[in-house]
Amino acid sequence: MFTIMMYIVASCLLILSFVKDRKKTLLAMKKAWKSFENILPQFLAIIVIIGIMLAVLSPEVISGLIGEKSGWLGMLMASLVGSVTLIPGFVAFPLTAALLKSGAGIMQIAVFISTLMMVGIVSIPLEIKYFGKKAALLRNSLAFVFSFIAAIAIGVVLR
């Protein structure tokens, strides 16, 4: 749905741009292609890593890793799994909802979701390309720590 909206917005602006200035629009398309081609190797590498990782870390394996263990060890485990995996939300949320039903702790689930979204070990080489090593590592470490704070807050509110 949102993807369709992105297409509509992009095409409208593209047409508007073309009507206003053909040369500039052509330049924009050239830039779009160049920036895409520029990072395509990294994109493809990330996608293959995700493929291998998700095949090994199947929903059952993830459930085993973060479903049973509770307490701080469970949270640590959930945060590590969340940091290294890169699962799209429409796969992750049904999984976490099922985990919750089967008895996983809310804080473990929350830390998993937060790290999943904010910490990206797999995409760090790409992030370094744009932000440099220090900033990329800092952002990811801070996000990792913050995920625990968010999880504790959720644990308190939803208890």
Binding site: T3, M6, S11, L13, F36
Partner: peptide, 10 residues
């Protein structure tokens, strides 16, 4: 990705 990069170019 295509619309993202089109917007980026524009």
């Amino acid at each position: 990705i295509p619309p993202i990069f089109v917007l980026l170019g524009l």
